[in-house]
């Protein structure tokens, strides 16, 4: 059993093999809990796998934010995230009933923690723009906005000579993406 501080340290690392260690520990320690939650509440094994993966994506993104402070155990936080995700899915299927809980501690989730999982038109449009950018630009923006890497880490990963080069690159790439997104006819509908 790896403790929360160690897992957090792994998740916040800039090295993908260390991040994977943290994710692997979360799978080993908490997957069965989430599987029980889903199966006891009208779900199948496959649903549990999806919910757990979505939950880890949201948790990973959250833990890498500057202001992130762990105010409950990772187990409780992950449970709260996955519980919300499963409730949302049940709601979509119109099968919402009071949940049978498998973990009693609770924590309130920060607003927006699940926003990056939303498959809406706005996110789709920006994601398409990101794919169109491709290459280094795509990678730099991913590192900054998804992995939340700092400029020093981005410079190291991308082989740039310093933080300022990484910062300029990020600004240029963001500008390109913004211009692409706003040039799309659908942008007006998406952003009103």
């Amino acid at each position: 059993m790896i403790n929360d501080q160690k897992i957090l340290q792994y998740l916040q690392s800039n090295r993908s093999n260390q991040q994977d260690e943290g994710l692997r520990a979360l799978y080993q320690q908490y997957y069965s809990m989430i599987e029980q939650l889903v199966i006891r509440n009208s779900g199948e094994r496959e649903d549990a796998a999806d919910v757990f993966q979505d939950g880890l994506v949201a948790l990973f993104h959250k833990t890498r934010q500057n202001e992130f402070v762990l105010t409950a155990s990772l187990k409780t936080l992950l449970y709260a995230i996955c519980r919300n995700l499963w409730l949302m899915k049940l709601r979509k299927k119109k099968r919402e009933t009071p949940l049978t809980e498998v973990h009693q501690e609770t924590v309130s989730l920060d607003a927006g923690i699940l926003d990056i999982l939303e498959d809406n038109d706005r996110n789709q449009l920006v994601a398409e723009g990101l794919r169109q950018l491709g290459g280094d630009c795509q990678k730099v923006l991913q590192l900054y906005y998804f992995e939340r890497s700092r400029m020093k880490g981005i410079a190291e990963t991308m082989g740039y000579s310093g933080e300022q080069v990484a910062k300029n690159k990020k600004s240029r790439c963001l500008r390109k993406l913004r211009e692409w997104v706003l040039a799309q006819p659908v942008a007006k509908e998406v952003w009103g």
């Binding site: 994506v57 939303e118 990101l130 923006l141 963001l174 993406l177 913004r178 997104v181």
Partner: peptide, 11 residues
């Protein structure tokens, strides 16, 4: 919203 979209597209 751009940041959210980039994070969504980076998963």
């Amino acid at each position: 919203e751009m940041r959210q979209g980039i994070a969504f597209g980076s998963q």
